[in-house]
Write a protein that binds this DNA or RNA. Sequence first.
DNA 1: CTAGGTGCAAAGTCTTTGCATGATA
DNA 2: TATCATGCAAAGACTTTGCACCTAG
Lengths: 141, 141
Amino acid sequence: MSDDLAQRLREQGLRLTPQRQLILRAVEELRHATPDEVLCHVREQVSSVNASTVYRTLEVLEELGLVRHTHLSDRAPTYHSTLEHEHVHVVCRRCQKVRSYGPELVAPLVEALAADGFTMDVGHLAVFGQCTDCGTTSEQT
Amino acid sequence: MSDDLAQRLREQGLRLTPQRQLILRAVEELRHATPDEVLCHVREQVSSVNASTVYRTLEVLEELGLVRHTHLSDRAPTYHSTLEHEHVHVVCRRCQKVRSYGPELVAPLVEALAADGFTMDVGHLAVFGQCTDCGTTSEQT
DNA sequence: CTAGGTGCAAAGTCTTTGCATGATA
DNA sequence: TATCATGCAAAGACTTTGCACCTAG
């Protein structure tokens, strides 16, 4: 995986740096991490890594196809490794819990859109709603 | 519609103000508008409406069930009227155009999730991807 | 040695908040 | 006239950018 990083960077004439390795590893370890969470995680191991480096690195890693991001809240995006199988995120607004499903969950949707001339980005999808349990056990805000 | 606004506000012990009427109308007229776009639109009619009023009002209108928001880009959210039929947004990353589909597009998804104890929020969904023949199809809705 | 990368600080975008003033019911 | 709403300005969360210095290849 870090081998993969080195190779893909080389292919683009980019350099392998400790920061890039650490940030990729952080994304792999934390499974759905915001840039800030990645920063904190990396800083537990090495001090003085800068937030701007995290943003720039996540962008590079995404271009290299090693990480992906999605929006699981109305706030900061979350990044995950592409080593994980492609998956769809389903988020409960009430309990904030995130479920992951395989691409087959949205196969009919992908097909319907394909038939209409649109290629869907499955890995970016975030479905919001509410766990049935949350709805019946919690009271409204 | 504005009658509806007055009534729903009254039910909550809230007040009908010109700003609230204008902001709701702006959302209805512009079909997918960011808070900033709403602000600009309202200011074309009345000067000195404040951005914070727009944010606060959109929040109130959403609580009253008169508007909804979704995320059609990595930037500001867009609001639309609930007078429109519930619809799913499909966004091309390349040409930025937005297609709208009826809820039947995601019926299988809704069912699959329901069977798994999850109630999906259809109107909030934004599907990203790319027009197969990008730039020549789809009209903005 | 040299292009690319990092840290730092400042600026930018979008949104929220505190408070005094103003308007609605 | 009692609240509730608004405008304003300041602060906040998140992200981007410019620049000097540093480092991998």
